[in-house]
């Protein structure tokens, strides 16, 4: 027994430096991974905090160009933040046939809870709640997916800081966002380049299954309006196709006071 203990002790002493080294390595690796993730999340939170307004209103012109044809859709968009949700009302102004069609969404901060959506069709004077859609399809036939126009909470993704790069003259953090619930999104990951000076992304790459690049969003024409920075122009290009969607924002106003019932589905008919 004593002999056995002696052998065991000797073996331990012989291997201890190696075990220790490995342990330090693992801890170091774990800590550096955690730090990278923490740094990534911190940057994402800073980006999320840029728009500190309680409400906003703007006109968006979405121009979709595909195979020599183009389609223009103009929308009036109003947003309001509540402690538990972000409400958004999109009223289509163009094309004329769709004028007045309204799309109301309530995106909840609790990402376990399904968002609510309603559509009002003026031609039929009907409001319908939409249930069950996975939001992975295109928004208004453009290159944006429905999920791209919904608010996405920071903690719906794992964040990783990939490094620092200079993109078109701007110093940026390069981030990787990997969804926690891969079934809830059409993307396997997103790569974002976030400008250090204004904490806003200047480029986003969207990847699908097998990490195949699906589309690239480039943001520009950054303006400071009422103390809040935002891009007034976005360009989403689908990979491997000639399809490009641009989104131009005008008439941007922050912290506007909206009627209390503006974001209620019962009032869409008005």
């Amino acid at each position: 027994m004593v002999a056995y203990a002696r052998v065991a002790l000797r073996a331990f002493l012989l291997r201890a430096p190696l075990v220790g080294l490995l342990a330090v390595g693992f801890i170091g690796l774990f800590m550096s991974t955690s730090l990278v993730a923490q740094a990534g999340r911190d940057i994402a939170l800073k980006w999320d905090a840029v728009d500190n307004s309680q409400s906003s209103s703007f006109k968006a012109t979405m121009t979709i160009k595909r195979g020599g044809q183009s389609l223009v859709r103009t929308m009036d968009i109003k947003r309001q933040k509540d402690p538990n949700s972000e409400k958004q009302l999109i009223v289509f102004l163009e094309p004329p046939d769709t004028r007045g069609t309204s799309y109301l969404t309530w995106a909840y901060r609790d990402h376990q809870k399904d968002d609510d959506m309603w559509v009002f069709l003026p031609a039929e004077s009907l409001t319908r709640r939409i249930a069950g859609g996975a939001r992975k399809g295109p928004f208004a036939r453009g290159d944006y997916a429905l999920e791209d126009i919904f608010r996405r909470e920071v903690d719906e993704d794992n964040w990783e800081l990939l490094g620092e790069v200079n993109l078109a003259g701007a110093d940026c953090h390069a981030l990787k966002a990997t969804p926690l619930d891969s079934k809830a999104t059409g993307y396997s990951k997103r790569l974002l380049w976030i400008r250090k000076d204004i904490n806003l992304p200047t480029k986003v790459e969207y990847y699908g299954p097998k990490d195949k690049l699906l589309k690239t969003l480039v943001l520009g024409d950054f303006k400071n309006i009422q103390g809040i920075w935002l891009p007034l122009r976005q360009r989403m290009a689908a990979q491997g196709t000639d399809s490009v969607t641009t989104l131009d924002l005008t008439e941007v106003v922050f912290n506007q006071t909206f009627p209390a019932d503006l974001f209620l589905s019962q009032n869409l008919k008005r």
Partner: peptide, 14 residues
């Protein structure tokens, strides 16, 4: 207009 709005509704419903 109904036809156009039906189709827009369909798009918005994924």
């Amino acid at each position: 207009a109904s036809a156009a709005q039906y189709l827009l509704l369909y798009e918005l419903a994924d």
